[in-house]
Amino acid sequence: MTSFPASDRLLHGIALLCIGAVLVALISQHVFDMRPCAWCVFQRLIYLLIAVLCWGALAARRWQPVSFLFCAAVPLAAIGGALAAWYQYDVASEMFSCDLTFADRFMVNSGLDAGLPWLFGIQASCLDAKVDLLGVEYAIWSLALFLVIAVLGIRHLANRKPQ
């Protein structure tokens, strides 16, 4: 059995954290009937983007500049996700409707909400989607995870060895 170098394990770990976050959201939605708002599904998209960036960096190892760009995009996307989670918590969750916010317009205009409704369907207003998990709002859990991913992504970049 071969083992991955530490930097590869870190990228795989980040990607798996992101896939895990989306799976928890889907279980919450489809098993526990916690309907997502536009900002919820927008954050799912960012988690999936980060996973693709991590695995893209691993796939592009032979092309160092491309691999580096994928790696550099990981913490940037995570910071964007943290901003989305903060906005959901601080602003959108106090609004009666998420209609016409950036997340709503993006998800609708991209066609993802209609094309993959089980994953990206907007089913609640931001106010209605304000729910807790273990006494902490989902948006705060997401914010914390995005910040952890950003730190891990920066750590990976700092420990990256040129080949």
Rank of each mutant, 00 (worst) to 15 (best):
N109E: 13
A51Q: 02
I79Q: 05
Q88N: 12
S28T: 01
L127M: 15
L69K: 11
S125P: 04
A150Y: 02
L58C: 04
L133W: 12
W118K: 10
A85P: 02
P75E: 05
G56N: 07
L100A: 13
W55V: 11
G111I: 04
N159K: 14
L45P: 06
T101L: 01
R35V: 00
V31Q: 07
V151Q: 09
V31I: 05
A84P: 02
G111Q: 04
A139N: 05
F96S: 13
A129T: 02
D33F: 13
A72K: 06
I149V: 15
S93D: 06
V52M: 11
D90K: 13
S97T: 01
F42Q: 01
Y47P: 06
A114P: 05
D90V: 01
F106K: 02
L100I: 10
L76M: 14
W39Q: 00
C54Y: 02
C54S: 08
A144N: 12
W55C: 11
L23C: 10
D132S: 08
G20K: 08
F96N: 09
V108S: 08
A38N: 02
D104T: 03
F146Y: 09
C37A: 06
W86C: 08
V136P: 08
R35M: 14
G20V: 06
P75R: 04
L116C: 06
L119H: 08
P75W: 03
E94M: 10
D33N: 15
L134P: 06
F42S: 01
V148L: 14
G121D: 07
A38M: 00
L23G: 12
V136Q: 09
S110M: 09
P162H: 15
W86L: 01
L119T: 05
G56I: 00
K130T: 00
V41K: 05
L119S: 03
G20R: 09
W39S: 02
D90G: 12
Q64D: 11
G81E: 00
V108N: 09
C37R: 01
Q123D: 15
G153I: 05
V108T: 14
V41W: 00
Y87V: 02
L48K: 13
I149Y: 14
C37L: 03
A92N: 12
R105N: 12
I27A: 09
L157H: 08
A77G: 02
V41I: 01
A59K: 10
A114E: 13
Y47T: 12
K161T: 13
D90T: 07
C54M: 05
D104C: 05
F68T: 15
M107H: 00
L53F: 04
L127Y: 14
L145R: 00
I46Y: 00
G115D: 14
A103E: 00
A60Q: 11
A25V: 01
L23T: 00
G20H: 07
S110L: 00
W63C: 09
A77S: 04
L49K: 12
Q64S: 13
V41Q: 03
A82Q: 01
P65Q: 14
C37K: 01
N109M: 12
S93A: 07
A158R: 15
P117K: 08
N109S: 13
F146G: 00
N159H: 14
A25T: 00
L112F: 15
A21T: 02
Q123K: 15
R105T: 03
